[in-house]
Design a protein around this nucleic acid. Structure first.
Lengths: 207, 207
DNA sequence: ACCTGAACACCGTTCAAGT
DNA sequence: ACCTGAACACCGTTCAAGT
Protein backbone atom coordinates (compact mmCIF):
# COMPACT_ATOMS: atom_id res chain seq x y z
CA UNK A 1 0.00 0.00 0.00
CA UNK A 2 2.39 2.58 1.24
CA UNK A 3 5.02 1.86 -1.39
CA UNK A 4 2.66 1.71 -4.38
CA UNK A 5 3.21 3.89 -7.42
CA UNK A 6 0.22 5.86 -8.61
CA UNK A 7 1.61 7.47 -11.71
CA UNK A 8 1.44 4.83 -14.41
CA UNK A 9 1.27 5.93 -17.99
CA UNK A 10 3.19 4.31 -20.81
CA UNK A 11 4.63 0.87 -21.42
CA UNK A 12 7.81 1.77 -19.56
CA UNK A 13 5.81 1.09 -16.44
CA UNK A 14 7.63 -2.07 -15.43
CA UNK A 15 11.04 -0.55 -16.05
CA UNK A 16 10.14 2.64 -14.23
CA UNK A 17 8.91 0.80 -11.21
CA UNK A 18 12.04 -1.33 -11.25
CA UNK A 19 14.32 1.66 -11.28
CA UNK A 20 12.30 3.15 -8.55
CA UNK A 21 12.78 0.08 -6.40
CA UNK A 22 16.50 0.20 -7.13
CA UNK A 23 16.72 3.83 -6.09
CA UNK A 24 14.68 3.09 -3.00
CA UNK A 25 17.12 0.35 -2.03
CA UNK A 26 20.06 2.75 -2.37
CA UNK A 27 18.28 5.36 -0.30
CA UNK A 28 17.38 2.82 2.37
CA UNK A 29 20.97 1.61 2.56
CA UNK A 30 22.18 5.19 2.95
CA UNK A 31 19.75 5.81 5.79
CA UNK A 32 20.80 2.64 7.56
CA UNK A 33 24.44 3.67 7.22
CA UNK A 34 23.64 6.99 8.86
CA UNK A 35 21.62 5.39 11.58
CA UNK A 36 23.72 2.44 12.63
CA UNK A 37 26.87 2.19 10.54
CA UNK A 38 27.98 -0.63 8.25
CA UNK A 39 26.72 -3.29 10.61
CA UNK A 40 23.17 -1.99 10.34
CA UNK A 41 23.13 -2.38 6.57
CA UNK A 42 21.91 -5.94 6.31
CA UNK A 43 20.12 -6.86 3.12
CA UNK A 44 17.22 -7.94 5.26
CA UNK A 45 16.91 -4.52 6.90
CA UNK A 46 17.29 -2.74 3.56
CA UNK A 47 14.63 -4.93 1.99
CA UNK A 48 12.26 -4.40 4.87
CA UNK A 49 12.51 -0.61 4.53
CA UNK A 50 11.45 -0.95 0.91
CA UNK A 51 8.79 -3.56 1.67
CA UNK A 52 10.23 -6.33 -0.45
CA UNK A 53 11.43 -9.77 0.51
CA UNK A 54 14.88 -10.15 1.99
CA UNK A 55 16.44 -11.37 -1.24
CA UNK A 56 14.74 -9.06 -3.68
CA UNK A 57 17.83 -6.80 -3.72
CA UNK A 58 19.62 -9.51 -5.69
CA UNK A 59 17.42 -8.64 -8.66
CA UNK A 60 19.07 -5.20 -8.69
CA UNK A 61 22.57 -5.68 -7.27
CA UNK A 62 25.09 -8.48 -7.62
CA UNK A 63 25.54 -8.61 -3.85
CA UNK A 64 25.63 -6.46 -0.73
CA UNK A 65 28.91 -4.89 -1.77
CA UNK A 66 27.42 -3.72 -5.07
CA UNK A 67 24.58 -2.02 -3.23
CA UNK A 68 27.06 -0.16 -1.07
CA UNK A 69 29.00 0.81 -4.17
CA UNK A 70 25.83 2.38 -5.54
CA UNK A 71 25.46 4.43 -2.37
CA UNK A 72 29.06 5.56 -2.73
CA UNK A 73 28.65 6.49 -6.37
CA UNK A 74 25.62 8.63 -5.61
CA UNK A 75 27.48 10.48 -2.86
CA UNK A 76 30.55 11.05 -5.02
CA UNK A 77 28.31 12.69 -7.59
CA UNK A 78 26.77 14.82 -4.85
CA UNK A 79 30.18 16.01 -3.71
CA UNK A 80 31.33 16.72 -7.23
CA UNK A 81 28.23 18.82 -7.85
CA UNK A 82 28.82 20.75 -4.62
CA UNK A 83 32.43 21.52 -5.58
CA UNK A 84 31.37 22.72 -9.00
CA UNK A 85 28.71 24.90 -7.47
CA UNK A 86 31.20 26.67 -5.22
CA UNK A 87 33.47 27.44 -8.13
CA UNK A 88 30.51 28.93 -10.01
CA UNK A 89 29.31 30.92 -7.04
CA UNK A 90 32.48 32.82 -6.17
CA UNK A 91 34.72 35.11 -8.13
CA UNK A 92 37.78 34.18 -6.07
CA UNK A 93 38.78 30.53 -5.91
CA UNK A 94 39.95 31.11 -2.36
CA UNK A 95 36.33 31.41 -1.23
CA UNK A 96 35.28 28.40 -3.27
CA UNK A 97 38.01 26.41 -1.54
CA UNK A 98 36.90 27.53 1.92
CA UNK A 99 33.30 26.63 1.20
CA UNK A 100 34.16 23.33 -0.44
CA UNK A 101 36.25 22.27 2.51
CA UNK A 102 33.53 23.29 4.94
CA UNK A 103 30.99 21.25 2.99
CA UNK A 104 33.32 18.26 2.78
CA UNK A 105 34.09 18.29 6.50
CA UNK A 106 30.44 18.73 7.30
CA UNK A 107 29.52 15.78 5.10
CA UNK A 108 32.14 13.60 6.78
CA UNK A 109 31.23 14.52 10.32
CA UNK A 110 27.49 14.17 9.85
CA UNK A 111 27.54 10.97 7.79
CA UNK A 112 30.37 9.00 9.34
CA UNK A 113 29.67 5.60 7.89
CA UNK A 114 28.93 6.95 4.43
CA UNK A 115 32.07 9.07 4.46
CA UNK A 116 34.15 6.04 5.32
CA UNK A 117 32.44 4.00 2.64
CA UNK A 118 33.60 6.50 0.03
CA UNK A 119 37.09 7.24 1.29
CA UNK A 120 38.23 4.39 3.42
CA UNK A 121 36.38 1.10 2.98
CA UNK A 122 38.83 -1.51 1.68
CA UNK A 123 36.09 -4.01 0.84
CA UNK A 124 34.51 -1.67 -1.67
CA UNK A 125 35.65 -3.05 -4.99
CA UNK A 126 35.33 -0.16 -7.41
CA UNK A 127 33.60 -0.88 -10.69
CA UNK A 128 33.87 1.49 -13.59
CA UNK A 129 31.01 3.78 -12.66
CA UNK A 130 32.19 4.26 -9.11
CA UNK A 131 35.79 4.84 -10.18
CA UNK A 132 34.62 7.49 -12.60
CA UNK A 133 32.50 9.27 -10.01
CA UNK A 134 35.35 9.24 -7.48
CA UNK A 135 37.89 10.55 -9.97
CA UNK A 136 35.43 13.16 -11.13
CA UNK A 137 34.97 14.60 -7.65
CA UNK A 138 38.72 14.66 -7.08
CA UNK A 139 39.29 16.52 -10.34
CA UNK A 140 36.68 19.06 -9.41
CA UNK A 141 38.48 19.69 -6.13
CA UNK A 142 41.80 19.75 -7.92
CA UNK A 143 40.55 22.51 -10.20
CA UNK A 144 39.72 24.66 -7.19
CA UNK A 145 43.16 24.15 -5.67
CA UNK A 146 44.80 24.89 -8.97
CA UNK A 147 42.96 28.20 -9.32
CA UNK A 148 43.96 29.13 -5.79
CA UNK A 149 47.56 28.65 -6.80
CA UNK A 150 47.10 31.02 -9.74
CA UNK A 151 45.59 33.54 -7.36
CA UNK A 152 48.70 33.24 -5.24
CA UNK A 153 46.75 32.02 -2.23
CA UNK A 154 48.46 28.63 -2.23
CA UNK A 155 52.14 27.83 -2.87
CA UNK A 156 53.19 27.01 -6.40
CA UNK A 157 54.10 23.37 -5.95
CA UNK A 158 52.95 20.70 -8.39
CA UNK A 159 49.21 21.14 -8.29
CA UNK A 160 48.24 17.47 -8.23
CA UNK A 161 50.72 16.84 -5.44
CA UNK A 162 49.46 19.81 -3.45
CA UNK A 163 45.86 18.72 -3.95
CA UNK A 164 46.86 15.27 -2.75
CA UNK A 165 48.45 16.71 0.37
CA UNK A 166 45.44 18.85 1.24
CA UNK A 167 43.18 15.90 0.50
CA UNK A 168 45.26 13.61 2.73
CA UNK A 169 45.33 16.08 5.62
CA UNK A 170 41.60 16.67 5.36
CA UNK A 171 40.86 12.98 5.19
CA UNK A 172 43.19 12.19 8.06
CA UNK A 173 41.67 14.84 10.30
CA UNK A 174 38.11 13.76 9.51
CA UNK A 175 38.84 10.07 9.79
CA UNK A 176 40.66 10.40 13.10
CA UNK A 177 37.81 12.47 14.44
CA UNK A 178 35.18 9.97 13.32
CA UNK A 179 37.12 7.15 14.92
CA UNK A 180 37.42 9.04 18.19
CA UNK A 181 41.19 9.08 17.80
CA UNK A 182 41.46 12.84 17.92
CA UNK A 183 40.10 13.30 21.42
CA UNK A 184 42.86 11.02 22.68
CA UNK A 185 45.33 13.75 21.98
CA UNK A 186 43.58 17.08 22.15
CA UNK A 187 40.46 18.65 23.46
CA UNK A 188 39.83 20.86 20.46
CA UNK A 189 37.21 20.79 17.76
CA UNK A 190 40.06 19.02 16.13
CA UNK A 191 39.18 19.01 12.44
CA UNK A 192 38.70 22.75 12.15
CA UNK A 193 41.81 23.42 14.18
CA UNK A 194 43.91 21.13 11.99
CA UNK A 195 42.56 22.59 8.76
CA UNK A 196 43.14 26.14 10.01
CA UNK A 197 46.72 25.38 10.92
CA UNK A 198 47.37 23.74 7.57
CA UNK A 199 46.22 26.75 5.58
CA UNK A 200 47.83 29.19 7.95
CA UNK A 201 51.15 27.47 7.31
CA UNK A 202 50.58 27.08 3.57
CA UNK A 203 49.96 30.82 3.43
CA UNK A 204 53.39 31.51 4.90
CA UNK A 205 55.42 29.37 2.52
CA UNK A 206 58.26 31.25 0.86
CA UNK A 207 58.19 31.33 -2.94
CA UNK B 1 50.43 -32.20 21.51
CA UNK B 2 51.83 -29.35 19.53
CA UNK B 3 50.51 -26.66 21.83
CA UNK B 4 51.60 -28.30 25.07
CA UNK B 5 53.84 -26.50 27.54
CA UNK B 6 56.91 -28.38 28.75
CA UNK B 7 58.27 -25.95 31.29
CA UNK B 8 56.21 -26.47 34.39
CA UNK B 9 57.70 -25.65 37.75
CA UNK B 10 55.87 -23.86 40.50
CA UNK B 11 52.25 -23.51 41.46
CA UNK B 12 51.79 -20.61 39.06
CA UNK B 13 51.49 -23.27 36.40
CA UNK B 14 47.82 -22.81 35.69
CA UNK B 15 48.07 -19.06 35.58
CA UNK B 16 51.11 -19.18 33.35
CA UNK B 17 49.43 -21.51 30.91
CA UNK B 18 46.37 -19.30 30.91
CA UNK B 19 48.35 -16.19 30.11
CA UNK B 20 50.14 -18.07 27.44
CA UNK B 21 46.87 -19.06 25.82
CA UNK B 22 45.74 -15.47 26.01
CA UNK B 23 48.89 -14.24 24.31
CA UNK B 24 48.54 -16.93 21.68
CA UNK B 25 45.01 -15.77 20.95
CA UNK B 26 46.22 -12.21 20.45
CA UNK B 27 49.01 -13.35 18.17
CA UNK B 28 46.65 -15.53 16.16
CA UNK B 29 44.22 -12.65 15.73
CA UNK B 30 47.04 -10.39 14.53
CA UNK B 31 48.12 -12.97 11.97
CA UNK B 32 44.60 -13.39 10.68
CA UNK B 33 44.28 -9.61 10.35
CA UNK B 34 47.44 -9.53 8.27
CA UNK B 35 46.34 -12.46 6.16
CA UNK B 36 42.74 -11.71 5.41
CA UNK B 37 41.63 -8.49 7.10
CA UNK B 38 38.92 -7.97 9.68
CA UNK B 39 36.60 -10.47 8.02
CA UNK B 40 39.12 -13.26 8.53
CA UNK B 41 39.24 -12.73 12.27
CA UNK B 42 36.43 -15.00 13.33
CA UNK B 43 36.63 -16.36 16.85
CA UNK B 44 36.40 -19.81 15.33
CA UNK B 45 39.46 -19.25 13.16
CA UNK B 46 41.40 -17.69 16.02
CA UNK B 47 40.54 -20.60 18.30
CA UNK B 48 41.52 -23.13 15.68
CA UNK B 49 44.97 -21.56 15.30
CA UNK B 50 45.50 -22.00 19.03
CA UNK B 51 43.93 -25.47 19.10
CA UNK B 52 41.13 -24.67 21.49
CA UNK B 53 37.39 -24.88 21.05
CA UNK B 54 35.61 -22.11 19.22
CA UNK B 55 34.33 -20.48 22.40
CA UNK B 56 37.39 -20.83 24.57
CA UNK B 57 38.37 -17.22 23.78
CA UNK B 58 35.46 -16.12 25.97
CA UNK B 59 37.44 -17.31 29.00
CA UNK B 60 40.03 -14.61 28.17
CA UNK B 61 38.12 -11.81 26.44
CA UNK B 62 34.69 -10.36 26.96
CA UNK B 63 33.93 -10.67 23.26
CA UNK B 64 35.47 -10.43 19.79
CA UNK B 65 35.88 -6.69 20.12
CA UNK B 66 37.91 -7.06 23.31
CA UNK B 67 40.28 -9.46 21.57
CA UNK B 68 40.84 -6.94 18.80
CA UNK B 69 41.42 -4.24 21.40
CA UNK B 70 44.18 -6.40 22.85
CA UNK B 71 45.83 -6.63 19.45
CA UNK B 72 45.61 -2.87 19.13
CA UNK B 73 47.06 -2.27 22.54
CA UNK B 74 50.03 -4.50 21.79
CA UNK B 75 50.73 -2.66 18.54
CA UNK B 76 50.41 0.77 20.17
CA UNK B 77 53.08 -0.29 22.65
CA UNK B 78 55.25 -1.50 19.80
CA UNK B 79 54.97 1.85 18.02
CA UNK B 80 55.66 3.78 21.19
CA UNK B 81 58.80 1.75 21.80
CA UNK B 82 59.96 2.34 18.22
CA UNK B 83 59.48 6.11 18.55
CA UNK B 84 61.40 6.16 21.81
CA UNK B 85 64.21 4.15 20.26
CA UNK B 86 64.63 6.65 17.42
CA UNK B 87 64.90 9.53 19.83
CA UNK B 88 67.57 7.65 21.76
CA UNK B 89 69.49 6.68 18.66
CA UNK B 90 70.00 10.08 17.05
CA UNK B 91 71.54 13.28 18.27
CA UNK B 92 69.33 15.39 16.04
CA UNK B 93 65.57 15.06 16.43
CA UNK B 94 65.24 15.69 12.70
CA UNK B 95 66.67 12.25 12.01
CA UNK B 96 64.53 10.64 14.67
CA UNK B 97 61.49 12.18 13.01
CA UNK B 98 62.49 10.89 9.57
CA UNK B 99 63.05 7.40 10.89
CA UNK B 100 59.90 7.37 12.99
CA UNK B 101 57.79 8.40 10.04
CA UNK B 102 59.42 5.80 7.83
CA UNK B 103 58.69 3.13 10.42
CA UNK B 104 55.14 4.31 10.88
CA UNK B 105 54.40 4.35 7.16
CA UNK B 106 56.02 0.98 6.77
CA UNK B 107 53.91 -0.46 9.57
CA UNK B 108 50.74 0.91 7.99
CA UNK B 109 51.46 -0.27 4.48
CA UNK B 110 52.55 -3.76 5.48
CA UNK B 111 49.83 -4.40 8.07
CA UNK B 112 46.80 -2.73 6.56
CA UNK B 113 44.08 -4.25 8.68
CA UNK B 114 46.04 -3.84 11.90
CA UNK B 115 46.85 -0.24 11.08
CA UNK B 116 43.18 0.49 10.53
CA UNK B 117 42.28 -1.26 13.72
CA UNK B 118 44.49 1.13 15.69
CA UNK B 119 43.76 4.37 13.88
CA UNK B 120 40.44 4.07 12.14
CA UNK B 121 38.14 1.33 13.43
CA UNK B 122 35.00 2.94 14.84
CA UNK B 123 33.78 -0.26 16.47
CA UNK B 124 36.82 -0.45 18.68
CA UNK B 125 35.55 0.77 22.02
CA UNK B 126 38.65 1.86 23.90
CA UNK B 127 39.00 0.66 27.47
CA UNK B 128 41.46 2.23 29.83
CA UNK B 129 44.49 0.19 28.87
CA UNK B 130 44.06 0.78 25.18
CA UNK B 131 43.45 4.48 25.64
CA UNK B 132 46.61 4.73 27.69
CA UNK B 133 48.70 2.90 25.09
CA UNK B 134 47.33 5.05 22.28
CA UNK B 135 47.95 8.28 24.13
CA UNK B 136 51.40 7.10 25.10
CA UNK B 137 52.45 6.52 21.50
CA UNK B 138 51.07 9.89 20.47
CA UNK B 139 52.98 11.63 23.23
CA UNK B 140 56.17 9.93 22.20
CA UNK B 141 55.68 11.19 18.65
CA UNK B 142 54.79 14.61 19.97
CA UNK B 143 58.06 14.81 21.84
CA UNK B 144 59.98 14.22 18.62
CA UNK B 145 58.07 16.93 16.78
CA UNK B 146 58.56 19.29 19.66
CA UNK B 147 62.33 18.78 19.64
CA UNK B 148 62.40 19.34 15.89
CA UNK B 149 60.78 22.72 16.50
CA UNK B 150 63.48 23.61 18.98
CA UNK B 151 66.06 22.62 16.40
CA UNK B 152 64.41 25.04 13.99
CA UNK B 153 63.60 22.25 11.54
CA UNK B 154 59.87 22.70 11.94
CA UNK B 155 57.86 25.94 12.24
CA UNK B 156 57.18 27.27 15.70
CA UNK B 157 53.43 26.82 15.82
CA UNK B 158 51.67 25.31 18.82
CA UNK B 159 53.44 21.98 19.13
CA UNK B 160 50.39 19.84 19.86
CA UNK B 161 48.57 21.40 16.95
CA UNK B 162 51.51 20.88 14.62
CA UNK B 163 51.85 17.28 15.76
CA UNK B 164 48.16 16.83 15.08
CA UNK B 165 48.53 18.21 11.59
CA UNK B 166 51.46 15.97 10.74
CA UNK B 167 49.66 13.04 12.29
CA UNK B 168 46.51 13.77 10.26
CA UNK B 169 48.40 14.15 6.99
CA UNK B 170 50.32 10.94 7.62
CA UNK B 171 47.21 9.06 8.54
CA UNK B 172 45.28 10.41 5.59
CA UNK B 173 47.99 9.49 3.12
CA UNK B 174 48.37 5.99 4.53
CA UNK B 175 44.66 5.35 4.84
CA UNK B 176 43.89 6.55 1.33
CA UNK B 177 46.68 4.37 0.01
CA UNK B 178 45.45 1.31 1.89
CA UNK B 179 41.94 1.85 0.59
CA UNK B 180 43.14 2.19 -2.98
CA UNK B 181 41.86 5.75 -3.08
CA UNK B 182 45.25 7.25 -3.93
CA UNK B 183 45.68 5.49 -7.26
CA UNK B 184 42.44 7.05 -8.40
CA UNK B 185 44.16 10.37 -8.55
CA UNK B 186 47.86 9.83 -9.09
CA UNK B 187 50.29 7.22 -10.25
CA UNK B 188 52.91 7.92 -7.60
CA UNK B 189 54.12 5.96 -4.63
CA UNK B 190 51.68 8.33 -3.12
CA UNK B 191 52.46 8.20 0.58
CA UNK B 192 56.13 9.06 0.22
CA UNK B 193 55.35 11.81 -2.26
CA UNK B 194 52.78 13.37 0.03
CA UNK B 195 55.02 13.20 3.07
CA UNK B 196 57.92 14.69 1.13
CA UNK B 197 55.82 17.58 -0.07
CA UNK B 198 54.49 18.25 3.42
CA UNK B 199 57.94 18.56 4.96
CA UNK B 200 59.31 20.46 2.00
CA UNK B 201 56.59 23.05 2.52
CA UNK B 202 56.93 23.07 6.30
CA UNK B 203 60.62 23.77 5.84
CA UNK B 204 59.83 26.90 3.84
CA UNK B 205 57.43 28.50 6.30
CA UNK B 206 58.35 32.07 7.21
CA UNK B 207 58.88 32.76 10.88
C1' DA C 1 11.38 -8.87 -15.75
C1' DC C 2 10.80 -8.99 -11.03
C1' DC C 3 9.72 -11.14 -6.72
C1' DT C 4 9.05 -14.86 -2.97
C1' DG C 5 9.94 -18.73 0.50
C1' DA C 6 12.79 -22.37 1.81
C1' DA C 7 17.25 -23.80 2.53
C1' DC C 8 22.50 -23.74 3.43
C1' DA C 9 26.73 -22.46 5.42
C1' DC C 10 28.81 -19.37 8.59
C1' DC C 11 29.24 -16.43 12.67
C1' DG C 12 28.99 -14.29 17.59
C1' DT C 13 27.33 -15.45 21.80
C1' DT C 14 25.25 -18.13 25.70
C1' DC C 15 24.68 -22.02 28.70
C1' DA C 16 25.01 -26.24 31.06
C1' DA C 17 28.56 -29.41 32.00
C1' DG C 18 32.91 -31.33 32.50
C1' DT C 19 38.29 -31.44 34.65
C1' DA D 1 40.26 -21.65 36.73
C1' DC D 2 39.78 -23.10 32.23
C1' DC D 3 37.68 -25.62 28.56
C1' DT D 4 34.01 -28.18 25.66
C1' DG D 5 29.67 -29.30 22.86
C1' DA D 6 25.11 -28.12 21.89
C1' DA D 7 22.09 -24.62 20.86
C1' DC D 8 20.14 -19.90 19.30
C1' DA D 9 19.56 -15.96 16.58
C1' DC D 10 21.27 -13.60 12.66
C1' DC D 11 23.32 -12.99 8.14
C1' DG D 12 24.74 -13.36 2.95
C1' DT D 13 23.73 -16.05 -0.70
C1' DT D 14 21.49 -19.58 -3.78
C1' DC D 15 17.72 -21.95 -5.89
C1' DA D 16 13.41 -23.48 -7.46
C1' DA D 17 9.10 -21.47 -8.25
C1' DG D 18 5.66 -18.15 -8.96
C1' DT D 19 3.31 -13.67 -11.74
Amino acid sequence: MEGSVDIVNEERTYETMAESTKEQLITAAAHLLDGGGQAAVTLRAVAELVNVSHNAPYRHFRDRSALLAAVAERDFRYLRRKFDEQLDRYERAEFALQQSIALFVDYGLSHNARYRLLFSDPDLQPEEGLKQAALSSFQSFHLIVSKCQHEGVLPSADSVGLTGLIYAALHGAIDLDIGGRASDAKGLSSVDATVSLLFSLLGKVRA
